[in-house]
């Protein structure tokens, strides 16, 4: 069949000047302000922000649940307003914490029903249903009524549903909220495996959890009050708040042949300070370690420092790179922590 759109070379998600205004009793509320965003095929892209930042509104627009007030958005070149039916064939979504499902149906019955809604012939639908039940490791609950399932089991079922139509674009709106550590880990692993199965499968994830975003996302946009404040890879975002690279280098002891001043004069070195000196196991037991905090203009400068220490006879015990966390990035950009932001929203 001839391709009638330029979608094969299009971005997975292209958002251009999207705004959304809700009418409320007290006036209008602007949930999104002229958002621009491009997500490439195959990316796992994260939207990080507090409650009310506009993350879910953007996902609703992209998943055809809501119309934008202004601007345009497309999924693999298909406009989410004009090509709704086609967009729905190539995408799916999962929201966390809403305990959705028909309690009277069994897990398998509910998935089978959605397979029909996705337009699959019955036999093909049941094949995919059983494959997803197997993939999520929920064969033990396949014939159990949904009302009897735990939160984690329901959410796994929700994910299984979202994979039935093998979407190219998967929207995950706080998908691990309310899940225990084990269930959240299972879900994350399954999402990664799903992406790995087919090049080009793209995921847009909203989350509160900094560690989840840091661990999973290729790129992240930090959103607040309906605006994207910054976007980039986790490393790029961290670089925004820490211009230099900080390494912690542990040696037995600083040899007399090399001083901190000598190290500071090496190319690419910004500063060197003794951070601490203690026992090897951190409890003062064993041979002592002297840790140097070395700030560099770039990673490559570390080689010169290590060479200088080795030439002076220092025994290298440990090297670690110290980076700011996403939480620190968030605080710097938004001006408050994500949990503070949520508390403000709750008030």
């Amino acid at each position: 069949m001839a391709i009638s759109t330029p979608a094969a070379s299009a971005a997975a998600v292209e958002v251009s000047g999207v705004g959304r205004v809700f009418q409320a009793k007290g006036g209008s509320v602007t949930a999104l302000h002229n958002i621009d965003l491009r997500i490439e095929p195959g990316e796992l892209f994260g939207l990080l922000g507090p409650n009310g930042a506009g993350k879910s509104t953007l996902i609703k627009i992209l998943s055809t649940l809501l119309l934008p007030s202004s601007g345009s958005a497309s999924i693999f070149g298909l406009d989410v307003v004009r090509d709704t039916a086609r967009v729905r064939r190539i995408m799916n979504l999962v929201a966390g914490g809403d305990f959705s499902g028909y309690g009277l149906l069994t897990a398998r019955e509910q998935l089978a029903m959605f397979a029909q809604f996705y337009g699959m012939p019955y036999a093909e639908g049941m094949r995919r249903v059983d494959a997803q039940i197997e993939a999520f490791g929920i064969t033990d609950i396949r014939d159990r009524k949904i009302s009897a399932l735990s939160t984690g089991q329901r959410q796994k079922l929700n994910f299984a549903r979202s994979f039935l139509n093998e979407p190219w674009m998967l929207f995950l709106d706080e998908p691990t909220i309310g899940l225990d550590v084990s269930a959240a880990r299972d879900v994350r692993e399954r999402v990664r495996a799903f992406q790995a199965e087919q090049p080009g499968r793209t995921v847009l994830l909203t989350t509160h959890y900094m560690a989840e975003a840091d661990e999973m996302c290729d790129r992240i946009a930090i959103v607040d009050h309906g605006r994207i404040l910054a976007q980039g890879t986790p490393t790029e975002l961290k670089r925004m708040v820490q211009k230099e690279t900080l390494f912690i280098v542990g040696v037995d002891e600083l040899p007399a042949a090399v001083s901190l001043g000598t190290l500071r004069e090496l190319p690419g070195v910004i500063s060197v300070v003794v951070r601490d000196a203690d026992g090897a196991d951190g409890n003062g037991v064993g041979s002592p370690v002297t840790r140097l905090a070395i700030a560099l203009r770039e990673d490559a400068a570390l080689g010169g420092v290590i060479s200088a220490l080795a030439a002076a006879g220092a025994h290298l015990r440990e090297i670690s790179k110290s980076e700011p966390t996403l939480e620190e990035v968030f605080v710097q950009l938004v001006g408050r922590g994500i949990s503070e932001s949520d508390s403000e929203q709750a008030l």
């Binding site: 069949m1 001839a2 391709i3 009638s4 759109t5 979608a7 094969a8 070379s9 490439e40 095929p41 195959g42 990316e43 796992l44 693999f76 298909l78 039916a85 086609r86 967009v87 064939r89 190539i90 029909q116 809604f117 337009g119 699959m120 019955y122 093998e166 190219w168 992406q195 090049p199 080009g200 290729d218 790129r219």
Partner: peptide
């Protein structure tokens, strides 16, 4: 993941890009 990926739009989900045939059958299933 950011490297250019060419997706074969004519394969599994070709209906997404061609005429929406089979709508009546889909409606009956639903």
């Amino acid at each position: 993941s950011c490297s250019p990926v060419q997706i074969d739009l004519t394969s599994r989900t070709s209906r997404a890009f061609g005429p929406l045939r089979g709508d009546a059958a889909d409606a009956a299933r639903s």
